[in-house]
Amino acid sequence: MSFTTLVLRGLRLTLALWLLTVVVITLPLLGLARVVAPDSATGSLVRRNGVVVGSRLLGQPFAGDRYLQGRPAGNPNLGPANPKLAIRIAGAADTWRRVGITKPAPDLLFVSGSGVDPHISLAAARQQLPRLAATRQLPPERLERLLRQHIDGPGRLRAIEPLVNVLGFNLALDDLSDGAPQRP
């Protein structure tokens, strides 16, 4: 068999497999996804007053004291023995101490892998409730009840531990306060 034959066969194979693996199987799945799971397919979007304000699956940065704060985002590639890691952790712990949380939960100090981890631990959330009760002028018990309503996992295998979905909680917090979005 000549080399030309081999190349011609290769070209025809490439064209056929490209169409098969890129077009033929992707298009029906895109269609099927719209039918069986339109919410997942489009990114689990959260709307408020018809406007997309985020995704249930993705965390958002929260810096103001009117919202529950999520995990810090930053460079997730500092090695465990890197002095910069210890300095960053010490700085973050210090920031929390200044707002009255003397021993912040570890997930408030460690950056996440994705930078958009939607969750924090129950401990990390509860540490922030007194502050939210003060800024939002809501009774702490009401906030605790709200917290329980926004727990993800371990039920339905959504997470390995019970965790709080920060965006979901904050949206509910806004609804609870006055229903309108408030800027810090």
């Binding site: 023995a81 997930d107 969750h119």
Partner: peptide, 23 residues
């Protein structure tokens, strides 16, 4: 190396929904 500030699993660069051991 971080025991001054925290204890427990190494959650640096990890997602809470999986946890440190499964990562």
């Amino acid at each position: 190396a971080l025991s001054t500030w925290l204890d427990g699993p190494n959650l640096e660069g990890k997602e809470l929904r999986f946890g440190a051991p499964l990562t």
